[in-house]
């Protein structure tokens, strides 16, 4: 018998701190597998965010920098300009990327920075205890939208991938999900493709991954997958939003 599935080399041995059933771990593994398959682990520099994935620098087995909240695309810009021959990626949640770091991601994309953003959208702030995110769905109850998010007072959930896809500097933007095996397999392909685009020097790339937050959604891990499928995908349609040939 031979091993057909094992821990990718691009992940360290450190046990991950995420809550049971949180899909951050799946996305970490997909990124690591893509780095392994492209044999670029030693030529990759990652940037960790602030939020649940703040310890990503402990998990990805490559050179890493930890950025201030929302600033990962600016930090990645600095790294990439110094090492244009290396692969540089950011790993950011929705509070980090879509709220406090909205300017940084827009302008990194617009400059066509040859970096890859892995954007985790779980419609909530996880680390700080389940507050409303820019991506929180209408009527979704969170710690800071206790009566449900209302468009009149909190505005509508932001579709970041669609927004960034209007920018000329963006070479590839796709929204994927990890709520079942089929979608996990596809998410992996998208992440790998984003890195390939970066290696080819095509421009800014981003993969938005719809993810779960069982703890702050108040659901079991399994219920969370269903909630994602039933509630998030209708508002955040999956698919390629921009691809420059």
């Amino acid at each position: 018998m031979k091993k057909v599935f094992k821990r990718p080399e691009s992940l360290t041995d450190k046990p991950m701190h995420y809550c049971p059933g949180c899909t951050h771990g799946i996305v970490h593994r997909l990124v690591a597998e893509a780095l392994d398959e492209l044999n670029i682990r030693q030529d990759t520099i990652g940037v960790a965010p602030v939020g649940c994935a703040v310890f990503a620098y402990d998990y990805f087995n490559c050179d890493m920098q930890e950025a201030a909240h929302g600033r990962a695309p600016a930090v990645a810009t600095g790294i990439k300009r110094v090492h244009p021959d290396k692969v540089v990626f950011t790993y950011q949640g929705d509070g980090d990327l879509a709220s406090i770091g909205a300017a940084e991601i827009v302008h990194a994309a617009n400059r066509g920075e040859k970096i890859t953003a892995i954007f985790i959208n779980n419609a909530i702030y996880g680390m700080t205890g389940g507050q409303m995110a820019p991506t929180t769905l209408l009527d979704q109850v969170t710690a800071t939208s206790p009566y449900g998010r209302k468009a009149e007072t909190e505005g509508y959930p932001i579709r970041i991938s669609e927004m960034l896809s209007t920018l000329e500097g963006a070479a590839y933007i796709e929204r994927v999900s990890v709520h079942d095996i089929k979608h996990i397999n596809h998410a992996k392909k998208a992440i790998r493709k984003a890195f390939e685009y970066q290696l080819q020097g095509r421009g800014f790339t981003m993969v938005e991954v719809l993810s779960t937050c069982p703890t702050n959604w108040g659901l079991t891990p399994l219920e969370s997958l269903k909630w994602l499928k039933d509630n998030m995908i209708p508002y955040y349609p999956l698919g390629v939003k921009r691809e420059v040939e």
Binding site: I45, V47, Q65, A67, A68, R71, A74, V75, A76, T77, G78, I79, K80, R81, V82, H83, A103, E104, V106, H107, R111
Partner: peptide, 26 residues
């Protein structure tokens, strides 16, 4: 070398962080 007019002072200093962390004189 590389010059970037950043989108804000906040971004500029964080680009400095990234480049300094990458080993450059910045």
């Amino acid at each position: 070398g590389t010059f970037i007019q950043a989108e804000s002072e906040i971004s500029a200093i964080n680009m400095v962080y990234g480049a300094a962390g990458a080993g450059a004189r910045v």
